[in-house]
Design a protein around this nucleic acid. Structure first.
Length: 156
DNA sequence: GCCAACGTTGGC
DNA sequence: GCCAACGTTGGC
């Protein structure tokens, strides 16, 4: 028996990488995450086949725009070793990588964006700790329960 | 573009 | 180990 699949939400700024970009390329290494908590979720929590809600942040109408899936086990983020990369980390080495990522695979675009504004109206059901509705939270990768997953997609 | 909230860095 | 300074996130 394979372990039950988990669910996640991952934020991306559409100017940098949008759901349309993911649809075009099919699968993409989720590079550039430089937050330890988000890294830990990818490195320690994600399994191939897990569900991902694709969220657009820092845009006119922030919200959930698509469904994706985890397409690889975690492995070191190559950009941490690249001196020319914006994501270069001088403290990371091949022997001791600091940043890990997974590949994310396109599944589908939602019929419409589920705006953050609407998600907030369900804060009671989602729970105060849900990072999209928790005040001040900036976490860009976090787990979603099966119940939250179902609720959020029911808004589509 | 503003700025509140947050995470990280580094001097001490 | 504290904490001020700094850089980043992301909604608005």
């Amino acid at each position: 028996m394979s372990p039950r699949k988990r669910y996640w939400l991952m934020k991306s700024e559409p100017d940098a990488f949008s759901i349309d970009d993911l649809q075009r390329v099919g699968t993409e290494p989720w590079n550039g995450v430089r937050n330890y908590q988000a890294r830990n979720f990818m490195r320690d929590g994600m399994k191939v086949g897990d569900g991902v809600l694709f969220y657009h942040s820092n845009t006119a109408v922030p919200g959930i725009v698509g469904v994706a899936s985890v397409a690889s086990p975690a492995y070191p983020d190559e950009t941490q070793f690249d001196r020319k990369s914006h994501y270069f980390d001088p403290k990371a080495t091949r022997e001791q990588p600091r940043w890990f990522l997974v590949d994310v695979k396109f599944e589908r675009k939602l019929e419409r964006t589920i705006p953050l504004e609407e998600i907030k109206q369900h804060a009671d059901e989602l729970g105060e700790a849900f990072p999209l509705v928790a005040r001040g939270s900036r976490l860009s990768v976090f787990p979603v329960t099966a119940a939250q997953w179902k609720l959020l997609l029911s808004l589509e």
